[in-house]
Write a protein that binds this DNA or RNA. Structure first.
Length: 877
DNA sequence: GACCCGACTTGACGCCAGGCCG
DNA sequence: CGGCCTGGCGTCAAGTCGGGTC
């Protein structure tokens, strides 16, 4: 399948002067493989556990190996899995099974990925996740591919879109066009839709252009037209034909190019670009706030908002939190008065007295030793049990507690099954509680926590985010984290620093006889409390206000405003980096190529990492082995990014970029830095010269929001709400793909799919029978007997035809459902919605199209985005 | 300019409740 | 009406990036 996306841009005259336009053309298709990400593979799941080891979940994989031995005698409840074997702990040294084994063993759907030949992923092997996938290259299935690759076709479109290609005008090749016209950049990313149908390209420029913000203020920022486009993503699909080119014609852009610096592209009144209808709307909107459209729109959101606000205010003597906060201009000050109750601690450990077996005999443990043993025991079903590093680190820390001379000398001779079984029983008991009991428990907890849930900031009652101190447990690092399995010790009040207003009462320490480490009154920061991370003492764990707070909302808004501002600069920035692709100054060249990758592929900046962290990379830390040059101008990326999520993507790039990468790789070892002269500080310093406040991550926000806005604008058609919601989801999906937001395939995915296909088969059987009956009915014969030999009712041919039609519909519906499910099984929509898509785009779209905002944002998001609810319906990113 | 510290955002995942469907 | 699925929510790990220091 294809999926490939490659968009390929070409650049024409590269070297030329500044004015040279870059053109991205789409190539026919590139075929490449794609990226994949693997999905499933991902993480071992970890279960969470609470302090007492109540953790939960089982993981998906069963551990084959190790750790627990089964005590033959008792295996009471045991989880089914457990039953199968007892697991004994594998010794550290002998990793027993290796991951492969485990993976194979696993039930889970996850498949392993295999690294490709290129060996890019170096370590992949280790990580379970990775392995799963099998050859990437070969596979066709999209699942395996990285999200981006799935975008298929899009690429071009994307690009185009992004660049705003001007469809309008020209369609054809850029070559003919004047430079300036060609100049557009292409965006890259664009992946848009997974579905090909949605082609963006077709739309006219005009439609693509954005209007600018509705409000006057906003207006300034937005500039005009700039078609900024998104990057494209990769591939283009074949479907899209190659024909279109995107180009932007922005004269201004070309002009500006020269000044490498900043300046936004022309703003002008951009109405010119807008379609007339839009302009009209715009003017109306901007002039009067109460334009009908707006009012209506308001309604769309108002009710839910009201509810939320009401709630917030209810029972509160504090003023309501304003959606708009004053901007943080006044220096660094984040608040004037701050009152809160501190943090709440997990309950102390309650020993259960269940003994583990050592060489088959029960062993007495002190409560402290037992607590840690319990943390380990309850993780039996997780993939961590197969990881030698996890076992090694756990054993090192546990052994410290046991003492050198303890009876227990080897982890592999320990059998934790009794504790595991006890834990399963406890879980079961909890499950069996009646609804009333559960409710009572919940209320009790709420009562205890109530006071910690709120803070009063400048007179406004605001929700606190994570007021619960993290319980002790075993560290669950992602990927191949060197510290996985280490004991994350319990945090006490004496570890905690509280930050509170000078005149506010100091929160009472919840543990009698103990006291806080320190009390601060620092109003230049937003944290309410912090403690040092027990795993990495130089790091901190902070307690912040919840996402719904004004403080967070304000910074969220600022983030999106900055991204919007990038729109005004993007053409120049793209022109500038394009020019530098061929710079003789290698540092400049590296900066240019890195910026291009960040813009086009939405890569993260890639800070340096310590030895004691998982080995993952971002743009600036890419290794030579992470990028493979495929002639004539494709690049195949394969690396582990944040959270050890694999990024695999093959993209067509401008020839100068291709050549530059080849040059950067020359005479380096696979593990050397591709961008050896670069780091995130240098990169960001450079970006700031192009636009105030610009950093690498702004490109992600920009490309994500831009894509959402474009897709919603272009793809929304008349229809019912459900249809519009689907359009939204598709747009959201594209954004998720661009950002490579993946999720593991749900454990029941396979079975769900097979159930669905069984049903479809069944319906098809019914259909066949109906057809037979129809033939017979037409000839005046009675229907055949049914499967049970019973005579069926005699129906008229018309009635049978009706039945056939409805059955066909059912089948179709199920097939669509199945496809969507399969399609989305590895794509996580939530992250982009929460962090990358400017909520104003969504709210304005809902208002314009009469879609109740609740269909898109849940309660939490409505609260988090309260600041965006009164946006003008004509708002465009 | 290399570190390091510090603050804050981003991100995947687990659990649970509530809704859906047969 | 009971089991299954999904979405909401919380958790906590893992990024980004600015600023200060030497």
């Amino acid at each position: 399948m294809a999926v490939e996306a490659s968009a390929k841009p070409f650049l024409n005259d590269l070297d030329e002067d500044d004015d040279a336009p870059l053109i991205f053309r789409r190539s026919g298709n590139s075929s490449s493989k794609q990226n994949q990400v693997n999905q499933e593979v991902k993480k071992p799941s970890s279960s969470s556990q609470n302090s007492n080891g109540q953790s939960t979940n089982a993981q998906r994989g069963k551990a084959t190996v190790p750790s627990f031995k089964a005590p033959a005698e008792k295996s009471p409840i045991g989880s089914p899995k457990a039953s199968s074997s007892s697991c004994k702990v594998a010794t550290v040294k002998s990793p027993v099974t290796n991951s492969k084994a485990s993976s194979s063993a696993n039930v889970q759907p996850k498949q392993t990925l295999k690294p490709n030949a290129s060996g890019v992923v170096k370590e992949e092997i280790n990580s379970v996740k990775i392995e799963t996938k099998s050859n990437v290259d070969d596979e066709d299935s999209e699942d395996e591919k990285p999200l981006n690759s799935r975008i298929k076709g899009i690429s071009n479109s994307a690009n185009k879109g992004a660049s705003e290609p001007a469809p309008v005008k020209g369609e054809d090749s850029d070559d003919d066009k004047p430079l300036s016209a060609r100049y557009s950049v292409k965006p890259t990313s664009g992946s848009l839709s997974g579905k090909p149908n949605v082609s963006i390209e077709k739309k006219s420029l005009a439609s693509k252009t954005q209007t600018n913000g509705s409000t006057v203020k906003v207006k300034q920022q937005s500039s005009s037209v700039v078609p900024a486009k998104r990057p494209m993503n990769k591939a283009d699909s074949s479907d899209q034909s190659s024909s279109k080119k995107l180009k932007l014609s922005d004269a201004s852009a070309s002009a500006k190019v020269k000044q490498v610096t900043v300046k936004p592209v022309a703003k002008a009144d951009d109405d010119d670009h807008l379609p007339i209808s839009q302009r009209m709307k715009k003017s109306v909107a901007s002039t009067s706030k109460s334009s009908p459209a707006k009012q209506k729109a308001k309604k769309v959101v108002s009710s839910s908002l009201k509810k939320i606000n009401k709630k917030k205010m209810k029972n509160s003597k504090y003023s309501k939190s304003s959606k708009m906060m004053p901007s943080a201009t006044d220096g660094q000050k984040k608040w004037t008065t701050l009152v809160h109750s501190g943090v709440i601690f997990p309950p102390p450990y309650q020993p259960h007295g269940i003994k583990i077996l050592y060489k088959g005999k029960p062993v007495d443990l002190t409560p402290e030793q037992e607590e840690v043993a319990t943390m380990f025991a309850v993780m039996k079903d997780t993939d961590y049990m197969q990881k030698p590093k996890f076992l090694e680190n756990f054993w090192a820390d546990w052994r410290k507690l046991l003492g050198k001379n303890h009876v227990i000398q080897k982890l592999e001779d320990c059998d934790f099954t009794p504790i595991y079984d006890w834990h399963q029983q406890e879980k079961e008991k909890k499950k069996q509680m009646t609804a009333a009991e559960k409710k009572a428990l919940k209320e009790e907890k709420l009562k205890q926590e109530e006071k910690y849930m709120w803070a009063v900031v400048d007179g406004v009652k605001e929700k606190v985010g994570n007021f619960r101190v993290e319980p002790p447990g075993l560290f669950r690092g992602r990927g191949e984290h060197p510290k996985m399995g280490k004991l994350k010790k319990r945090i006490y009040p004496s570890d905690i620093t509280i930050n509170i207003g000078k005149d506010a009462p100091i929160p009472e320490c919840p543990i009698p006889g103990e006291r806080w480490k320190e009390i601060k009154h620092d109003n230049t920061v937003t944290w309410l409390a912090f403690w040092n991370d027990p795993i990495n003492p130089k790091e901190f764990k902070y307690v912040f206000l919840a996402a719904s707070s004004s403080l967070k909302g304000q910074s969220d808004r600022e983030k999106y405003e900055k991204a919007r501002k990038l729109k005004d600069y993007i053409d120049n920035i793209r022109a500038a980096y394009t020019k530098d692709f061929t710079s003789k100054d290698v540092t400049k060249k590296q900066i240019a190529v890195a910026t291009y990758l960040i813009d086009k592929l939405a890569l993260r900046a890639g800070n340096e990492k310590d030895e004691d962290e998982a080995d993952t990379v971002g743009c600036c830390t890419l290794k030579v082995e992470n990028v493979e040059c495929i002639s004539p101008n494709m690049l195949k990326f394969d690396f582990l990014g944040k959270d050890s999520i694999r990024y695999v993507n093959t993209v067509e790039v401008e020839l100068p970029v291709y050549k530059a990468i080849g040059q950067f790789q020359t005479s380096k070892k696979p593990n050397d830095d591709l961008f050896d002269l670069l780091d995130t500080t240098k990169l960001n310093t450079h970006l700031k010269e192009l636009m105030p406040g610009l950093t690498a991550k702004v490109f992600r926000t920009y490309n994500a929001s831009f894509t959402l806005d474009e897709m919603l604008f272009k793809e929304t058609e008349d229809g019912d709400v459900a249809e519009k919601v689907v359009v939204y989801q598709q747009a959201n999906k594209q954004v998720a793909i661009i950002c490579n937001h993946q999720r593991t395939v749900s454990r029941s995915h396979e079975s769900q799919m097979s159930k669905l296909s069984e049903k479809i088969e069944e319906l098809k059987g019914v259909l066949k029978e109906l057809k037979t009956d129809l033939d017979r009915a037409k000839k005046g014969k009675p229907p055949l007997k049914d499967a049970n030999g019973k005579q069926k009712r005699n129906l008229s041919p018309e009635a049978i035809e009706k039945k056939i039609a409805s059955t066909n519909q059912k089948i179709e519906k199920m097939e669509i459902n199945m496809r969507t499910k399969e399609d989305m099984k590895t794509v996580a929509l939530g992250t982009s919605k929460i962090n990358y898509c400017d909520p104003r785009i969504t709210v304005a779209w809902c208002k314009r199209h009469d879609v109740p905002i609740e269909k898109i944002f849940n309660k939490s998001l409505l609260a988090k985005f309260a600041w965006a609810m009164d946006v003008d319906p004509q708002f465009r990113f």
